[in-house]
Design a protein around this nucleic acid. Structure first.
Length: 575
RNA sequence: GGCGAGGUAGCUCAGUCGGUCAGAGCGAUGGAUUCAUAACCCAUAGGUCGAGAGUUCAAGUCUCUCUCUCGCCA
């Protein structure tokens, strides 16, 4: 998609719904952050976006844990769902809804879907044979059973081969359809390595998927009954997948499913999303998703996170980082350094500080600060005139003047023939960012914003406005040249800030506040939405550009340089 | 065990159809500069492109063998 015409298709992005018995940690926050950045970027581009996250609550263990805490399953689920809501609010996620699978709106629709599949003979009764762990009352996969020498991984007691009747979804009949769909790219599986993985596994053939579990004696009344069969419940996995559709399967939100649908998740649950779910949708006569994106994992200081090591990066540590370096800096680190590709990424403190200093303090923050400072110093906070951003011969009189000033000061210019074309440069950055967004390459998208910052820094070193500023009395058109140069820096950084805003909404809104940029519906609220699509906001000399009388306040530094030697922030948790 | 991905500068990684492909960013070092947050700008990495063999006028880039790491297996 080029940059000339914005994509008007509605955009629907989802995260997995999270298991309520978990405590919110970096994994949950990362998946949801990626979705948030993509959603914010798509809104910035001007699309109608719906961003969904939520909690998966009907697992058997939830009712058990609830009992251990003297709570009803619902009370327990609510306590934990609220933890996720609080964590996500802290992360400043812009989700449009938060679905809980215990909500009636979800349950009713899920029953409807399963009923339809049953009526059409796609879900039928059959025998399920598997390795059962009596001590844990759960079935293990063939692989897990084998790895543990067919003994319980928890108690070490032998597993039992058990057969029970279940309802099955006839997945094999969709094998050709799935293969064609994935091969053709209509169903896009990202990153590429994951697509190969899925196709490889598809070659080994498909089996029917159990969609129910038999209700055992003593089970709490928890979960959704299998329609037409009170002795079974809908298997939580199947029911959970349905959330993506149940939430928007109505008159008000139906357009989102018809638009572009993107499911985002960690790699462990790719199969369900890339194979089982699209096949179910196809069986239901619904359009499958356009994109299924499976990212890898975070590890902590070079080690896998595990319960036994107790090194999970939980929400409290993220809060400590946000407290010390700002929330947006933490969002930036996770987004740009995270495992968006096929490989795991390391959350290491030293790395965090490095990236913070290099990307934010030294680059974005410093550049915005130096430009704002010069405008205050030389023009008392407002630029008297705009500039078309063109600095090249033979029309580069402003640049020529600056070089003359350098010459006067006895400074040598290594290459006096350089030219700068800011409108072209910034437009290229914007269109690159939009293209990267289309590929879910958020790192590249954000780097397009940083490329403008680098360009401005380079420009400043080259034409040295601070040297020019000292010769305003002696150079006839010195003032005009200085105005043009600083205006262009300022306007370019404004455009850069738009591209950086999906990852750092608060900090960029802070800049717009300081510089009196009129991008947001409510300047006080970073989440209030943009007044216009990116193509208009980012237009050089357009309706949202820096105006001659616009006040450019210095403001506080957005990102102060951090000391590399400082210890990681404390969580306040006793560990 | 089956299928798959990968081993390229200290770190994270780019390298399309084999021939400026030996690169980028970060870190480190040196220089220049002072508007700025000891920031910015410029220069510097001589790395056997995991090991060995083969194909070719020419191979990180193709073939084979070995080795190591990793992922997926409902």
């Amino acid at each position: 998609m080029g940059s000339d015409q914005a994509n008007q298709t509605p955009y629907y992005i989802t995260t997995p719904i999270y298991y309520v018995n978990d405590r919110p940690h970096i994994g949950h926050c990362y998946s949801t952050l990626i979705a948030d950045v993509a959603a914010r970027a798509q809104r910035l581009v001007g699309r109608d976006v719906f961003f969904l996250t939520g909690t998966d609550e009907h697992a058997e263990k939830v009712s058990k844990t609830a009992a251990e805490h003297d709570k009803t399953p619902m009370e327990w689920a609510t306590i934990n769902a609220d933890r996720f809501k609080a964590a996500f609010e802290f992360m400043n996620f812009s989700n449009d809804d938060f679905v809980r699978t215990t909500e009636e709106r979800h349950k009713a629709k899920a029953v409807e879907y399963i009923t339809q599949l049953k009526d059409e003979g796609i879900v039928t009764l059959g025998d399920y044979e598997g390795w059962y762990d009596p001590s844990q009352e759960e079935y293990l996969t063939e692989m897990v059973a084998k790895e543990n020498d067919f003994k319980s991984p928890v108690t070490g007691k032998p597993l039992e081969k058990r057969v029970e009747q279940n309802w099955f979804f006839d997945l094999p009949r969709y094998e050709p359809w799935l293969k064609e769909r994935i091969d053709s790219g209509e169903l896009r599986i990202l990153p590429e390595a994951r697509k190969n993985e899925v196709l490889g596994r598809l070659k080994q053939g498909l089996r029917a998927v159990p969609v129910s579990r038999k209700i055992k004696e003593g089970d709490a009344d928890w979960g959704i009954k299998m329609p037409g069969d009170d002795s079974h419940r809908i298997y939580v996995w199947i029911e959970a997948l349905c959330n993506y559709l149940t939430t928007v399967d109505n008159a008000e939100r139906g357009q989102y499913w018809e638009g572009e649908v993107v499911h985002l998740m960690a790699k462990d649950i790719l199969w369900f999303h890339a194979i089982v779910w699209p096949a179910m949708l196809h069986a239901l006569g619904k359009k499958p998703p356009e994109t299924v994106y499976a990212h890898a994992y975070w590890i902590a200081e070079g080690k896998k996170m595990s319960k036994s090591l107790g090194n999970f990066i939980e929400i409290d540590l993220l809060q400590a980082y946000a407290e010390k370096y700002s929330l947006d800096a933490m969002r930036w680190f996770l987004t740009t350094q995270g495992p968006l590709g096929a490989n795991d990424a390391d959350f290491a403190h030293a790395r965090f500080v490095e990236v913070y200093n290099a990307d934010l303090a030294n680059s974005v923050g410093n550049s915005m600060s130096r430009v704002g400072n010069m405008i205050n110093k030389y023009f008392d906070g407002t630029i008297p005139a705009t500039c078309n951003g063109e600095f090249g011969f033979p029309n580069g009189s402003s640049l020529q003047t600056a070089l003359t000033a350098l010459d006067n000061a006895g400074k040598t210019v290594d290459d006096p023939s350089r030219t700068y074309h800011f409108p072209e440069f910034t437009q290229k950055a914007v269109s690159d960012a939009v293209d990267a967004l289309g590929k879910m390459d958020l790192e590249s998208m954000l780097d397009s914003g940083r490329s403008i910052v680098r360009h401005v820094d380079d420009f400043i070193s080259y034409c040295a406005p601070f040297t020019l500023a000292k010769q305003l009395d002696t150079l006839g058109d010195g003032k005009h040249a200085l105005e043009s140069i600083l205006y262009s820096c300022c306007e370019a950084l404004r455009i850069a800030s738009l591209l950086l805003s999906p990852a750092m909404p608060e900090k960029m809104a802070e800049l717009w506040g300081n510089w009196n940029c009129d991008h947001l519906n409510n300047p006080e609220d970073p989440n209030s939405g943009f007044k216009a699509p990116l193509s208009e906001l980012a237009a050089w000399g357009g309706g949202y550009s820096i105006k001659p009388d616009q006040e450019i306040l210095k403001g506080e530094a957005l990102f102060m340089r951090a000391d590399v030697k400082e210890q990681p922030p404390e969580t306040g948790r006793n560990s």
